[in-house]
């Protein structure tokens, strides 16, 4: 069956982005836009929150904005 989405919001995908570079919540949301994942806005927020709670990334402030990041 063909997939309706070309991007999947998964823990692995979020981990890969946060290892590559620090990102704000908005940066992450841009990577998992609802039109790409097929999820609703509410689902996106809920799933991303659960993933970030599990990953428990480091945080740092860059240009006065809070960024998450992970080290390998």
């Amino acid at each position: 069956t063909p997939s309706s989405s070309d991007v999947q919001l998964t823990e692995d995908a979020v981990r890969r982005y946060l290892i590559r570079k620090p990102m704000t919540t908005k940066d992450l949301l841009k990577k998992f836009q609802t039109k790409r994942t097929g999820l609703s806005s509410e689902q996106t927020v809920n799933v991303l929150a659960q993933i970030l709670k599990r990953l428990n990334p480091e945080r740092k402030s860059i240009n006065e904005k809070m960024h998450f990041y992970l080290t390998e």
Binding site: T25, K26, L29, K30, A49
Partner: peptide, 20 residues
């Protein structure tokens, strides 16, 4: 739209602030 993105970011940060 960018305002929807702002709302989603705010909702996500609110969820995370409860936790972190």
């Amino acid at each position: 739209s960018s305002s929807e993105a702002d709302e989603m970011a705010a909702a996500l940060e609110a969820e995370l602030n409860d936790f972190m």
